[in-house]
Design a binder for these strands. Structure first.
Length: 472
RNA sequence: GGGACCAUAGGGUAGCUUGGUCGAUCCUUUGGGCUUUGGGAGCCUGAGACUCCGGUUCAAAUCCGGGUGGUCCCA
């Protein structure tokens, strides 16, 4: 039982291997692009969602819409439909009987939700609406799928939908959405770049799209979240109107934003190593594992003390377990590493005699002797927060080292294919941008900031600094 | 969208070129037993597989066609 594939040299193989060995998902389910969440993986998912929901619930209400969408609703918004029509699964039969109207399995829920918004919204008093739901969605991917990264069933899609009186309020909501996601990614110690997506790569039907991209260790970027300003396009399509204070009837402005399984994929991919998972403490299903070192003599005393420590930690709010299995200590250590439990406590007869325990950190493997008479809870709390800080710094440093300014167009391919995100200056022209993508065979992720000087491609005045990368 | 490769126990593999020796190899996993236990212990004894459909043949894990699934590369 070993992780095959080097994290850096053979990232794909390593990723497949860790998902299997650490029992995150079972991707042998016999339908392309669909896999099973296993108990260990599902717990990680649960704690990630818990953090996300905690952030969302401050300013959003959770709802749940149906899985199926009538064909007529899905077809209403032309641009939106074009973006998804190749990927929609259809329900065509009820039993043996063909349905009068085909039903789409949601590829995303705008067209399920917005007809209801038009029923709910009457007056400006009803606004803003801010709701979210965590659901599965289905997309008929024709390319080759990858577990958690490119799937046919997105099992975990937390999508938010908001409605506002003015365009400005919607724009502000986009910024609020970005801020929420930043907080989540900080909790997960996942580094990110926020990009204003180029016009040809925005969400179908949106005015503009901001996207969160992170960098995998093979140098490809992964889009892990998106935030869209929908303007009033959908409001017009779905006939959503409100009566303003002045008595006018107007279309409101909308936003939507979402995160998926990919957050968990990046969590695993970014922190994991050759020995297995490394999990940020806040989402580790088990935060501390206690390994009693047991010999024939003195077993009872050791177990008693181990349980005592467990209870203290439990009362202190930790998710803690004792590894009581009848296995050699070494085997348990390997499991501890594979499962990415942040802290391991060893306690044996020798330690008991010295009134000590040994604390080992998963991220650094540093060992520390810790007196049993000290305040264990605050000791471990500070240890966990150190782990989180370290993971965050490590991950951010890795990404920062691989974001490279490029000033000459013939260097783009070489530098990016070497595992970097390139920063280049761009005039902002659609044709020019497409030309850069075609020439380099890479993707422009979007605008990161303003720029002065010359466009790397056409030499006209540059407007933006943009990122270019190889993407998943 | 195009291409390459692949499918044998839970995981990884040998066998396939040249059909018969396969009642299918080895490692890992796994049940039971004994001895062990501060980093994957040892011995004994069990369990577990030729992706599916069709074709060729006296005979198919092996050859041919298709389906399904998987991996990688390019657009």
């Amino acid at each position: 039982m070993t992780i095959t594939g080097d994290v850096m040299e053979d990232f794909s193989q390593w990723f497949h291997s860790i998902l299997e060995e650490a029992k995150i998902i079972d991707s042998r389910y016999p339908i392309k692009g669909m896999s099973v969440w296993l108990p260990k993986g599902f717990k990680i998912r649960k704690y990630v969602l818990r953090e996300l929901e905690r952030l969302m619930d401050k300013d959003h209400d959770e709802v749940l819409f149906p899985l199926l969408i009538p064909e007529t609703e899905l077809a209403k918004e032309g641009i939106h439909v074009k973006g998804f029509e190749e990927e929609v699964y259809w329900v065509t039969h009820g039993g043996m009987k063909e349905l009068n109207e085909k039903l789409a399995i949601r590829p995303t829920s705008e067209t399920a939700i917005y007809p209801m918004f038009s029923l709910w919204i009457r007056s400006h008093i009803d606004l803003p609406i801010k709701v979210y739901q965590t659901v599965n969605t289905m997309r008929y991917e024709t390319k080759h799928t990858r577990p958690l990264i490119r799937v046919r069933e997105i099992t975990t899609f937390t999508e938010s939908h908001t409605v506002h009186e003015t365009y400005e309020q919607a724009s502000q909501q986009v910024q609020d959405g970005i801020a929420i996601y930043k907080r989540l990614f900080d909790i997960l110690a996942i580094p990110y770049l926020v990009h204003d997506r180029p016009s040809w790569d925005k969400f179908p039907g949106a005015e503009y799209t901001f996207a969160f991209d992170t960098l995998m260790r093979d140098g490809k970027t992964l889009q892990v979240g998106t935030v869209h300003n929908l303007g009033d396009t959908f409001a017009k399509t779905f006939d959503i109107k409100y009566e303003a204070a002045d008595g006018d009837h107007r279309h409101p402005y909308q936003t939507c934003y979402g995160l998926s399984d990919r957050v968990i994929a990046s969590l695993i991919a970014i922190h994991g190593d050759e020995k297995g998972l490394v999990l940020p403490p806040l989402v580790a299903p088990t935060q501390v594992t206690i390994i009693p070192i047991i010999f024939k003599d003195g077993a009872e005393d050791v177990l008693y003390k181990a349980n005592e420590i467990k209870d203290i930690l439990k009362d202190g709010g930790f998710r803690v377990s004792i590894d009581n299995r009848d296995l050699r200590a070494g085997k348990k250590y390997y499991d501890w590493e594979l499962n990415g439990i942040p802290i391991r406590i060893d306690i044996g007869p020798r330690d008991l005699k010295n009134n000590k325990m040994i604390i080992t950190r998963r991220d650094t493997f540093t060992k520390e002797e810790c007196s049993l008479s000290e305040d264990i809870v605050s000791n471990l709390n500070s240890c966990l927060s150190k782990i989180n800080t370290n993971l965050k710094e490590k991950a951010w440093n890795f990404m920062r080292e691989h974001v490279v300014e490029i000033d000459s167009s013939d260097k783009i391919e070489e530098i990016v294919l070497n595992g970097n995100v390139g920063l280049i200056k761009w005039c902002g022209g659609y044709d020019c941008g497409k030309e850069i993508e075609d020439k380099t065979n890479l993707d422009i992720l979007g605008v990161q900031g303003e720029a002065k000087g010359e466009c790397i491609n056409c030499n006209k005045n540059a407007k933006h600094t943009i990122s270019i990368a190889k993407t998943y």
